[in-house]
Deep mutational scan, measured.
Amino acid sequence: YWITCCPTCDVDINTWVPFYSTELNKPAMIYCSHGDGHWVHAQCMDLAERTLIHLSAGSNKYYCNEHVEIARALHTP
């Protein structure tokens, strides 16, 4: 949970406070499906809480801010 998930990541173990109602003692993470995949903080991706809950409940693929354009290009005929 205490990783630098992207170039603009500002989640710090020493200063972090809950942002989403689902967070208690660690930041919400979401899995990016690009390549071998990697974890990113939901807050760093500017996800709305409703979107985070929807993604967490389903089996939808998610692409982080850095990889979403690549994913779109691969799926565009």
Rank of each mutant, 00 (worst) to 15 (best):
K61A: 13
A42P: 01
Y62G: 02
H38N: 01
I53G: 12
N65E: 14
P27L: 00
H67V: 03
I53M: 13
C9Y: 01
T15M: 12
G37T: 00
E49N: 06
A71C: 11
V11Y: 02
L47Y: 02
I13S: 05
P27T: 04
D12T: 05
K26S: 07
N60K: 08
P18E: 04
H75L: 11
T76R: 09
A57D: 13
V68I: 04
I3R: 11
N25T: 10
N25A: 08
T4G: 10
A42N: 00
K26Y: 03
C64A: 00
P18V: 01
A71D: 11
Q43W: 02
F19Q: 03
N14A: 02
T51P: 06
L24Q: 09
Y63N: 03
N25W: 11
E49G: 04
A73F: 02
S59L: 09
D36N: 06
P27F: 02
Y31M: 12
T15R: 02
D10A: 14
D36R: 05
N14K: 12
D36S: 07
D36E: 04
C32N: 00
Q43M: 10
G58M: 08
K26L: 10
C6A: 15
G37A: 02
C5G: 03
E69W: 14
W2P: 04
H34P: 01
T8R: 06
D46Q: 14
D12W: 04
K26T: 09
I70K: 07
N60Y: 09
A48Q: 15
H75N: 14
H67T: 05
H75T: 14
Y62I: 04
Y63H: 12
S56G: 12
A71I: 12
L52I: 06
E49L: 08
H67I: 00
S56W: 09
W2M: 05
G37S: 01
A42D: 01
D46Y: 08
V40T: 03
I13V: 03
E66G: 12
V11N: 01
G37F: 01
R72D: 13
T76C: 03
Y20V: 01
Q43V: 08
T8K: 08
Y20N: 09
T22F: 06
V68N: 05
D36Q: 14
A71T: 14
I3A: 10
S21G: 08
C44M: 00
N65Q: 06
H38K: 00
L52H: 02
R72K: 13
V11D: 01
C32F: 00
D46S: 15
T51M: 08
A73Y: 08
L24F: 03
A48E: 13
I70H: 06
N14E: 15
R50V: 14
C32L: 00
K26Q: 06
W39K: 05
S59Q: 05
A57Y: 08
I53D: 06
Y1H: 03
S56K: 13
P27V: 01
C9S: 01
H54D: 13
P7W: 05
V40K: 04
I13Y: 15
H41D: 01
S59D: 15
V40M: 09
T15A: 03
I53V: 10
I53E: 06
W2D: 05
C32E: 00
G58N: 03
I3M: 10
Y63K: 12
N60R: 10
G37E: 01
Y31F: 10
A73I: 10
L47A: 09
L47Q: 06
Y63R: 10
G58T: 06
A73L: 14
S33M: 08
Y63I: 13
D46P: 05
C44Q: 00
H41L: 04
D46V: 14
A28S: 11
A28Q: 09
S56Y: 14
K61L: 15
H54S: 12
P27S: 00
A71N: 08
D46N: 13
L24E: 15
S56F: 10
K61H: 15
Y63Q: 11
N25S: 10
C64M: 00
A71K: 05
S56L: 10
C64Q: 01
M29S: 15
H75V: 09
L55F: 10
H75P: 08
H67R: 05
K61C: 09
R50A: 15
V40Y: 01
T8Y: 02
C64G: 00
I3Q: 06
W39D: 02
N14D: 15
M45R: 01
L24S: 07
H54T: 08
V40E: 01
M45C: 06
T76N: 08
T51I: 07
S33A: 14
D46L: 13
A42Q: 02
W39C: 03
A42C: 08
D36T: 02
S21T: 04
T22V: 10
R50L: 13
D10Y: 03
L52W: 12
D36W: 05
K61S: 08
L47N: 03
M29C: 02
C44P: 00
A71P: 11
N60M: 09
K26R: 12
S56N: 06
W2Y: 14
T76A: 12
A28R: 05
S59E: 12
H75A: 12
R72N: 14
V68D: 11
W39L: 09
V40I: 09
P27Q: 01
S33H: 08
L52S: 05
R72A: 15
A57I: 15
Y63D: 06
I3P: 02
V68L: 09
K61R: 04
R72W: 07
L55S: 12
Y63T: 15
R50T: 14
S21M: 04
V40L: 10
L47K: 02
W39N: 05
H75C: 07
V17R: 11
V17Q: 14
A28H: 05
I53F: 11
M45L: 04
N65M: 08
I3L: 08
A73N: 06
A42G: 08
C44H: 00
A57G: 09
L52E: 05
V40S: 02
A48R: 13
H67F: 02
P27R: 00
T8Q: 05
L55T: 07
W16C: 02
N25K: 15
G37M: 01
C32K: 00
L52Q: 12
L52G: 03
V40N: 02
V11W: 06
H67K: 03
P27I: 01
V17A: 15
W2R: 03
E23D: 15
T76G: 10
L52N: 04
C44T: 02
C64L: 00
E49R: 03
D12C: 00
E23K: 02
H54L: 13
K26W: 13
P27C: 00
H75W: 09
H67L: 01
C9W: 02
R72Y: 04
C6L: 04
H34R: 08
Y20W: 06
W2H: 08
C9Q: 06
W39Y: 13
E49P: 13
D36A: 06
H41C: 04
A48V: 12
Y20S: 02
I13H: 08
A71Q: 14
D46K: 15
M29A: 02
H34Q: 14
G35V: 06
M29E: 03
E69V: 07
D10R: 15
C5A: 02
W39Q: 06
T76M: 11
A57H: 14
Y1K: 03
M45F: 05
I53W: 08
E49V: 05
N65V: 12
H34S: 11
C44V: 00
C44N: 01
F19M: 11
A73M: 08
T4D: 11
T51L: 13
H67E: 04
D36V: 06
S33D: 13
E66A: 11
P7E: 14
L47H: 05
A48C: 10
S21Y: 11
D46F: 05
Q43S: 07
E69A: 09
A73T: 13
L24Y: 04
A28E: 07
G35D: 08
C64R: 00
L47C: 09
Y62H: 03
S21L: 02
R72V: 11
T22D: 08
V11S: 03
L55Q: 13
E66W: 06
E69D: 14
A73H: 15
D12M: 12
P18R: 03
C44E: 00
L24K: 14
A28T: 05
V68W: 09
H75Q: 14
Y31S: 06
V68C: 11
Q43G: 06
R50S: 15
K61W: 07
Q43T: 15
H75M: 10
P77S: 03
Y63S: 06
N60H: 09
Q43R: 15
S59M: 10
E49H: 10
H34A: 11
L47W: 02
E66Q: 10
E66V: 09
V68T: 04
H34C: 04
T76Y: 10
M29L: 14
Y1G: 09
G37D: 00
G58D: 13
C6G: 11
K61E: 12
M29G: 03
Y62T: 07
I3F: 14
A42E: 00
D10L: 15
D10C: 13
Y62D: 02
D36G: 11
Y31A: 06
M45H: 14
C9G: 00
L55D: 07
P18Q: 03
T22M: 15
G35Q: 07
D12F: 05
D46H: 09
A71F: 05
I53N: 15
S21V: 04
V11F: 03
D36C: 09
M45Q: 13
I30F: 04
T51Q: 07
T8A: 03
L24G: 11
E23R: 00
C32D: 00
